[in-house]
Amino acid sequence: MPANPRNGRPYRRLCRDQRALRLPCWWCGEPIRYDLTGYAAQRHRDAFTLDHAVPLSLGGDLLAKANARSAHRRCNSARGNRTDGQRQPVRSSRRW
Results as ranks from 00 to 15, higher is better:
Y39K: 12
L50F: 09
C28G: 09
N4A: 08
R22C: 12
N7C: 02
A66H: 02
D46T: 09
D17L: 09
D51S: 08
I32K: 00
M1I: 11
V90C: 10
G85L: 05
T83R: 10
A41K: 01
A78D: 11
G8R: 12
A53F: 01
A40W: 03
G85F: 00
F48Y: 15
D35N: 10
A20S: 10
S70W: 15
R16M: 08
G85E: 09
R12I: 11
W27E: 06
G29V: 08
R9S: 11
P5Q: 08
R69F: 09
A71G: 04
P2D: 04
T49H: 14
R6F: 11
P24D: 10
L21Y: 08
P2K: 08
R94T: 07
D17H: 05
F48M: 07
H52I: 04
L63W: 07
C25E: 11
V54D: 02
E30Q: 12
R19S: 11
R79I: 00
Q42P: 02
C75P: 09
W26A: 02
N81C: 12
S77G: 05
P89L: 13
C15F: 03
C75R: 10
P5Y: 06
W27Q: 12
C28K: 03
R6Q: 13
L36E: 00
R95V: 13
N76C: 02
D46N: 14
A47D: 03
W96D: 12
S93F: 07
D84N: 04
Q42N: 07
P55Y: 01
V90E: 07
R94D: 13
R74G: 00
G80V: 09
D35F: 10
N67H: 05
A53K: 05
Y34K: 10
P5L: 14
R33Q: 05
S77V: 14
P2W: 03
A41V: 05
S57L: 02
R22E: 04
G8V: 04
R87G: 00
L62V: 08
P2A: 10
